[in-house]
Amino acid sequence: MIRLLMILGTILVLGAGAGYVLTRPRPLPPPAVEGLVGDAAAGERIFWAGGCASCHAAPKAEGDARLVLSGGQRLVSPFGTFVVPNISPDALDGIGGWSLLDFATALKRGVAPSGENLYPAFPYTTYTRMEMQDIADLKAFMDTLPPSGRVDEPHDLPFPFNLRVALGPWKALNLDPDWVIANPPSEAATKGRYLVEALGHCAECHTPRNAIGGLDLGRWMGGAPNPAGKGRIPNITPAALDWSEEDIAYYLKTGFKPDFDSAGGEMADVVANMAHLSDDDLAAIAAYVKALPPVANGGS
């Protein structure tokens, strides 16, 4: 009996070891960033399209204060509360000390310079689809922003969600650089797909999640419970949203809905980001949204 337990224990340990080896954090190889030179002016567009300020600006920041990426917002989720880190260019308390390779590894692989897995509250399942040049441009722009000396606080996560090693298998299931919408019907919708699926991370709220917090790709943008508790995030597929492309683009630019009620809640921050994009980019996002496969209401 003891022998049997020992054998079982050995299998378990070996299995866990093999699982770790198969799913351990994998930084990008150095050649990935070779020859890349960032353009800060181009990076500003990536910054707003990527929605970085929505989470990384200080709580309640408005206007230019949204460019100070001090962190400090508390994101409530079913897995615990995440405290958003300082990603300002401060060398000590922010990410000013990160190389381009470190930065690209975080965005595309969800791995910190320390080699630890990052939590997917940071939407690297979206950013993994970014072009390397856009990553270089984004870093060049973020390096121009004001530094903040705010010191990071630990996340407030219960066991087992406080084990970063468990994110390895999670990533194996959920970190996929393939496009969700394989064949957008137009050039505009294809451009919109990049803005949404690689940068805007709309799906993080508008798509429901499975039991382990991965996005249910079969109900892409079909609406979901609000992770912060109250209410639901709406279904924005054509099954539920009948706004025209112009209406969608104008809403993202100004916050005004077709009936001229205006955005509130988390979408107010999204509009504050999107208002910095060109009309062409907003039209592209609208074309993509209109081309989404319809998802009927009523799922989880």
């Binding site: 100004t254 916050g255 005004f256 205006s262 509130g264 809640g265 107010a268 509009v271």
Partner: peptide, 20 residues
Amino acid sequence: LGKLGEACTACHKEYRQPDK
């Protein structure tokens, strides 16, 4: 009009319950 929209959303964000 865009600036007016900013003022509308700034208040709705803080003080209005999001739609259910």
